[in-house]
Design a protein around this nucleic acid. Structure first.
Lengths: 250, 250
DNA sequence: TTCCTCCTGTGGTCAGACCACATGCGCATC
DNA sequence: GATGCGCATGTGGTCTGACCACAGGAGGAA
């Protein structure tokens, strides 16, 4: 329906100017003409080259910025301008977070996706040679500090899970995991009061984390996946996360 | 260095206007104030309310549009304006496709992500009660038509895999799968000439598809996952997909 | 009652201007 | 000749105001 771009070829409804700019940049990326570290042409020049207004170019650049493809900076010099960075975490988080906010992604689906994806990552990680779990272990040590606030603990917990995904060495998997986790961060925090006992729960989570790391290190992918599945599912069941937050904090 | 945004708290560097608009809309979404089907306020009014220029509001709306959260239309009446739609496929595809183009997502990582995610989806689907694979089966029937061009066949193949993900009933998983598949579509097509024999390969793919559906229908998640893993891995190995396309077609 | 016309409000785009900022050249000074 | 400082320059960020195309609906004319 919205795919009029794939329509025959007759009377294309005057390609929108910002899309012209976006596709121009995408084409230059695909052609290898632009790559990480390179600067986009100045907005004014790009506008002149493409025959569109600068505001249209800016809309395209804005999209690229939110998607994590470019970083913009004012001023002059090598650090100024729009630079290709290709850091996907921000973009994945943005799309998932906003889709959750707009009810395009039900919370339950995000949780379920974690239950599908994360054990698979753990199993994959267990099979992977040369894995390095020191960073993840360091986070577990940090979580053993007594007296942590739930918010602090859960922040470390989130980092732990994302770090595991990063240890897989796969940018797509880690960015996806980061997005999944970020998109429901607010809801996870809001559901803490539902827990029967924060102390008991946090202790259990810490023990489960250690067990997961141990399983991965021993190369037992099946066990790691099973433990991770139970770990994630258990917490969500206990905290009874729903979509009713309405406490946006910021 | 560029992280002056994370500075103490003093003299926050004047939040960028477009971000103000974006966060305002996100907050209204989170608060349930806006939902699918609702209209965003007119750009001019939103600009006046927030004390920013209309161009800044437009940048925010543009981001939302690319992320698949709103659909915009000119004119007047119920269908005009910016309407919340929350269709995630477009946004996921956009972020993944552009990240691949900018070398933020190596092709190998996308392929590997499929190898991790898709078998997990299949296993999850096999365990799911009330699954409906009729649509997927119909696609397989369509792929049995003799004389299909590789491009046609692969388009159906892509639809089959995405349809399987959709059958899981999980919007996050299906949108992710769609994004993964879309992001490397061009490369898959470009690698067809690498195949030793298209006829033999397509025949094998068709047989494997049937086997996968059979495994899922029989509820054997382990077998379904194993078959899907071998199916995807086998094709990529045989077609020797690389990141060297440089044939952007459009 | 029906039909047609024009008014209205919407997004889409453009043009031009100004600002804040970081750099680095070039001049004045030592 | 070496050194230090100030301003020209070019960048993104923002605002203002204008015009266009379009779709719907109100209102008048038949």
């Amino acid at each position: 329906m919205t795919e009029q771009a794939a329509a025959p070829a007759a009377a294309l409804p005057t390609a929108r100017a910002w899309r012209v700019a976006l596709e121009h940049i995408e084409a230059r990326l695909l052609a290898g003409d632009l790559g990480p570290g390179d600067h986009l042409p100045p907005e004014r020049q790009l506008a002149a080259d493409l025959g569109v207004a600068r505001s249209s170019v800016r809309e395209a650049v804005r999209v690229l910025e939110v998607l994590g493809l470019v970083r913009t900076a004012t001023g002059s010099g090598p650090n100024a301008g729009a630079v290709i960075v290709a850091s996907p975490e921000g973009g994945m988080s943005a799309v998932m977070r906003l889709q959750v906010a707009a009810h395009g992604f039900p919370i339950a689906d995000v949780v379920e996706a974690r239950l599908v994806v994360e054990p698979a990552i753990a199993a994959h990680l267990a099979r992977r040679a040369g894995r390095d779990l020191r960073q993840a272990s360091a986070l577990l040590d940090a979580m053993d500090v007594p007296g942590l606030e739930p918010a602090e603990f859960l922040a470390l917990d989130a980092r732990f899970h994302v770090t595991l995904a990063e240890a897989s060495g796969n940018t797509v998997l880690s960015a996806t995991m980061a997005g999944l986790r970020d998109s429901i961060e607010g809801y996870v925090l809001a559901a803490v009061p539902n827990l029967p006992s924060w102390l008991a729960t946090s202790a259990r989570l810490r023990a489960e984390h250690r067990g997961i790391v141990r399983a991965i290190e021993s190369g037992d992918g099946t066990d790691a996946a099973r433990r991770l599945q139970a770990h994630v599912a258990g917490y969500y069941a206990e905290s009874r996360i729903t979509g009713d937050t309405n406490d946006t904090t910021r």
